[in-house]
Write a protein that binds this DNA or RNA. Structure first.
Lengths: 342, 342
DNA sequence: TTGAAAGCGCTAACAT
DNA sequence: ATGTTAGCGCTTTCAA
């Protein structure tokens, strides 16, 4: 089917070895032969068999990305952007990207283990790290290369890129407080996500610095979807003593919260303030435009991928850890006034 | 590093061949040997070297998915859902998913060609087909297995799954007309996308059946993003003679259009009706909730993948073509009244 | 400057 | 029921 080294070798009456060397620009091939080989190879449309190369070289030039999905209606704009970041970097560096989708749990770990023991990929990219993250534990334990988007509680000796959630939520609180809010509520996903815990911590700490407190009743846990945000916001806003502001842990939840508020006849940005986190493209075009914390997701994807490949290629054990300071995007979901809330 | 067949063979004093056969449940191995081999293999944590297998079998058990991306802010909720559909099906059928992200154009075709000539994958999944689609042309020409989500103008002899866009837009028109709208505008992406042309055609045809017409000035072309929808809607709605309804080609554009209307102080669902296409999870929680055409994106992803793998495995040339009838999700972005527009 | 030979880990045709 | 041999396509000693 495809031309092989052997085909070329036969055609020009040289050995397979020589052809291989010529094609790989070894020094010890006469310029004439090299020329000829290359030309014939081009003519025959020769393409190296990647599996033969990998078998021989014991390298896969592939990186693995196992996307944590939750049910069929998996549709977080965050992922496509992150994926694009990884994908473009990987291909520009000559790496393949092997993607798998698995809900967190047994299937997920099984997939990791399979890929590691079968040397399916040279390294992994992990996202949405949990505080005690089985994936991270496993990968560190087996000394398998990986870079994560996010930290964990249990280790610090691995490469990651992360956005400072404490700081990000601090910015949110500052903004809200400056607007006169005192009764601030939070809608967050499972606190076993490291980013969730961290952002909540940022919220609480900063609130405390302002002499404010996050009431137990104002902390709502739900899943990372609009629906989650919707349900919890509805409950919050129908409390006898409802909050005047809601900080959601991501944009999706914030969208849901806005929707809930509006369904209750409230004007978001006036009757209630709502904030997000991510700054997905939609945030800007939501109604009202969502005040949120910007994360450069695409760039983070690229960086994570680049760091991983560098680590794979150099085999170095230098652990690169990047911390990104987030930026608050002030839009209209918190209003613009300084009116007094109480 | 990892145990190989040879290691096992040596350990139990049998040949590599026998071990291989035992592991693959061939008949001609004594039950005793088979048992013993399997046990030792498990003990040693044997995992077949996938590249050796592939080299030998001349099959990759991998399917390729090249995602058309447009710039870094690539964040269409459509894709993550589709990807999850493919991913889950692929892994449940024992296939790997090789993903690449490429903007349509040279890089994209180059990637296809590379993967084909290098036998990098067993087949492709293509989405967002163009009316004259280079990818489809190439894949048909080279007789390389693929399944597309979407039809093309130039061929009909290939496997695809598609949603009936003519019908879908027909539903939209019906709804709009029933609500009394006469001045209906359209915001669409490049009409070289087959689905774009088709949906527009559905719009026009159905309109005609009602004795209505789509004014040239009411047809706006832009890109498939909120931003695109926003810009065009703004222009449309500030026309001397603005439309009373806008049909967008996908949800993202519709979201942008809603945003534009609201920025102009219009109440969507009352002053102007806006519709989408896709029914992404967000549509339901938008404000107002978006009336849109539902596509079962996750299921389509699964189906496409399943059909592809079936085709790869059976080598059959039976061309499966599935047409999905879409459903209109009536929500509030067109209002609920029968008031007269003019 | 070139080639022969070995081997990456596996499967399969052909003995026995 | 088991082993021998060959080969997938490539890279890499080692020798000439």
């Amino acid at each position: 089917m495809t031309a092989t080294l052997k085909d070329i070798a036969e055609k020009i009456g040289r050995s397979v070895t020589t052809v291989s060397r010529a094609l790989n620009d070894y020094e010890d091939v006469s310029p004439k032969t090299r020329e000829r080989v290359k030309q014939i190879a081009a003519e025959m449309g020769y393409q190296p068999n990647i599996y033969a190369q990998r078998l021989q070289k014991r390298r896969t030039d592939t990186i693995g990305f196992i996307i944590p999905t939750f049910g069929p209606r998996f549709s977080d704009p965050f992922f496509s952007e992150f994926l694009a970041g990884i994908g473009n970097m990987a291909s520009s560096l000559g790496y393949d990207l092997l993607v798998s989708t698995q809900a967190p749990g047994n299937g997920e770990m099984h997939t990791y283990r399979q890929m590691v023991t079968r040397h399916r990929v040279d390294g992994f990219i992990c996202i949405r790290t949990r505080r005690d993250d089985e994936r991270v534990n496993y990968l560190i334990e087996t000394e398998f290369p990986f870079v994560a988007f996010g930290r964990v509680d249990t280790h610090d000796n691995y490469a990651y890129v992360d956005v400072d959630g404490v700081c990000g939520m601090g910015l949110v609180v500052e903004h809200l407080v400056s607007l006169g809010h005192k009764r601030i509520a939070a809608i967050f996903p499972d606190l076993n996500y490291r980013f969730s815990k961290e952002r909540l911590q940022g919220l609480q700490e900063r609130l405390q610095q302002f002499g404010l407190e996050l009431l137990a009743d104002y902390i709502r846990i739900s899943d990372l979807t609009q629906n989650g945000g919707y349900q919890q916001a509805k409950e919050l806003l129908t409390l006898p003593n409802p909050p005047t502001a809601i900080a959601a842990c991501n944009d999706l939840m914030a969208f849901g919260a806005i929707s809930a508020a509006q369904d209750l006849g409230l004007v978001v940005g006036k009757d209630v303030a709502i904030t997000g986190f991510d700054d997905t493209p939609l945030a800007e075009h939501f109604h009202p435009p969502l005040t949120t914390v910007h994360q450069p997701v695409y760039q983070i994807g690229s960086m994570v991928c680049e760091i991983l490949i560098e680590r794979i290629q150099n085999g170095t054990q230098d652990i690169k850890q990047v911390m990104i300071q987030p930026e608050l995007m002030i839009r209209r979901s918190c209003g613009e006034s300084n009116e007094q809330h109480n």
